[in-house]
Amino acid sequence: MNWLLSITVQCEVNCALLRRVLFLVFLFAQANNISAETLIYELHIKDHLFYPSVLTIPASKKIKLLIFNDDLTPEEFESYELNREKVIMGKSKGVIFLGPLKAGKYPFFGEFNPETAQGNIEVK
């Protein structure tokens, strides 16, 4: 009878795991609903400077930020206030998702050229 008890216990454990996996799938489904509302903005890096250096975006909206690095060298977009870090290799593109954010000013900089590569995201 021990083997029967063992199979029953294993089944209960697996069923519990399955329920938890289904719950995570449900969370993913919720996430996809949100992505449909995303707005797209662009930022360029050229000669170790950000263009535009001030980017204005709307409050309480989700933003997809495309960052084009037009330089040959890599750069890292970094902002503690936005809680984002992203390395963008030379002559390539990076994608960052922001928000929804409250109104305010959120500074960012290029970690590899912090003296020149600086900017702000203004949320209004």
Binding site: L27, Q30, A31, I34, K62, F97, G99
Partner: peptide
Amino acid sequence: EQGEYWADW
């Protein structure tokens, strides 16, 4: 991607 969905995975 960070911030892309409801939570990051």
